[in-house]
């Protein structure tokens, strides 16, 4: 991992409008060349950003969701954990992407039934930047497992300006997948057990 220049304010004086952002294709090429091997990075609107490492509650939620979704969806959809999703000038790696069954061995998926992010330190980021990105990519169902407030936030009706609706599900409630209404996830099954 390359050490970031210190302190963080280094680039403050570079105007955002002057940044030369990478295109998705350029980023794909860098990855193919081995540029970020062994690093956790993603491309967001042409900028390469680092991802925070996974804490136990975060990994736990992913593990639980995979188990629940695999058994409920069977062979109707595929689940891609922490894998690349293709959006305009962006290559995010959502915690979970539920995609139609297809061959993604040559290109990452650019549409999804559902995208799920598990959020603790990245909550604001996932609620704003990632939501804007997924809405622009027309992802119809975007869930945030909010570990800070102990709930699941479900965003729907994507528009280029963002999601129109946000519904919050709390402990004791169940959220259903938009594309598979028979599949529901209990908030209690995903959040860490209360102490």
């Amino acid at each position: 991992m390359v050490a970031a220049p210190q302190p963080d304010g280094d680039r403050d004086a570079v105007p955002a409008a002057r940044l030369r952002r990478f295109t998705g294709e350029e980023y794909d090429k860098l990855v193919a060349l081995g540029y970020f091997a062994g690093e956790k990075v993603e491309l967001l609107r042409g900028l390469i950003v680092t991802m925070s490492p996974s804490e136990p509650p975060h990994a736990w939620a992913i593990q639980r969701l995979i188990r629940l979704l695999v058994s409920a969806l069977g062979d109707r959809a595929d689940i891609r954990p922490q894998s690349t999703f293709k959006a305009l000038h962006s290559r995010p790696e959502p915690d979970l992407v539920i995609v139609p069954v297809a061959d993604y061995s040559r290109a990452h998926p650019s549409s999804a039934h559902l995208i799920i992010e598990i959020s603790e330190s990245s909550l604001r980021y996932d609620q704003h930047d990632k939501a804007a990105l997924y809405a622009e990519a027309s992802v119809r169902d975007y869930w945030i497992v909010n570990l800070v407030d102990g709930c699941i936030e479900v965003r729907r009706e994507p528009t280029p300006q963002g999601y129109r609706t946000t519904t919050t599900y709390r402990r004791g409630e169940r959220a259903a997948l938009l594309d598979f209404p028979d599949v529901t996830i209990a908030v209690d099954d995903v959040l860490p057990p209360p102490r």
């Binding site: 970031a4 963080d8 390469i48 930047d129």
Partner: peptide
Amino acid sequence: ALAASGFRP
């Protein structure tokens, strides 16, 4: 909200 992560220089 980029503070959650950071740029990869």
